[in-house]
């Protein structure tokens, strides 16, 4: 799961009004961020009949969900709508396992910075497929600059702060300082752009090929 937020009521309620519900709640990433209390409150306030509810972790794991779907098959059979509280991955897994059933999500998912290896951290990687860190003193311009500029600052920084997100430091000022510190300012002369965006699509779509 990534971080999730519960959808606005007016978006979910009309979809489930008067329906018999079976509810899946994912607990897998509550250690990351999951508004468990909001979800419980929402479920408790529902007027609809709830024919069953399964709480499990790692709703993104097809194998586990498969076993739950089997275990709760009778209740699921009786429901008109399967309502899922999880990130987008969990919802897709549930609906792929219950293809002939109406599956709705109660959540919007958002991506937390740096949540790729372990939990979120101060670093972020967008997996662009061609790492620029050797030219930028180990500071990533793709993720740290809102415009993902590769060839230097846009000129909009004020007191070292980014003009798009004034809380953030201008990535290119940080890069400059870093390169200055390690005596590698000459690297800045290299022209890095334009990026190869086709890498993102071609390489991640055929992973098998990359492996070899």
């Amino acid at each position: 799961m990534l971080a999730v937020q519960i959808k606005p009521e007016e978006e979910i309620l009309p979809k489930i009004s008067g329906k018999k519900l079976f509810i899946f709640v994912c607990l897998g990433c509550q250690e990351v961020y999951f508004p468990r209390e909001d979800v419980e409150r929402f479920i408790n306030n529902l007027r609809e009949e709830i024919v069953g509810k399964a709480l499990l972790d790692y709703l993104c794991n097809r194998e586990f969900v498969g076993e739950y779907v089997k275990g709760y098959s009778k209740q699921i059979e009786r429901a008109n709508v399967i309502l899922v509280f999880s990130c987008g991955v969990g919802v897709q897994v549930v609906s792929s396992l219950l293809e002939d059933r109406v599956v709705y999500t109660g959540c919007d998912t958002l991506y937390l910075n740096g949540f790729q290896g372990l939990t979120s951290q101060e670093f972020n990687c967008n997996q662009c497929g061609e790492c620029y860190l050797n030219y930028t003193g180990g500071i990533c311009p793709i993720t740290n600059c809102p415009k993902s500029l590769l060839d230097g600052a846009c000129g909009g920084a004020k007191n070292g702060k980014c003009e798009v997100d004034p809380e953030a430091d201008c990535a290119w000022i940080l890069i400059y300082k870093k390169l200055e510190k390690i005596g590698k300012l000459d690297i800045l002369k290299k022209i890095l752009s334009p990026r190869d965006h086709s890498k993102i699509i071609t390489e991640s779509l055929s992973r098998e090929e990359i492996e070899r």
Partner: peptide, 11 residues
């Protein structure tokens, strides 16, 4: 993002 699993679904 593929969740904490190795499935094909992504978000």
């Amino acid at each position: 993002y593929h969740g904490i699993s190795l499935e094909k679904e992504k978000c």
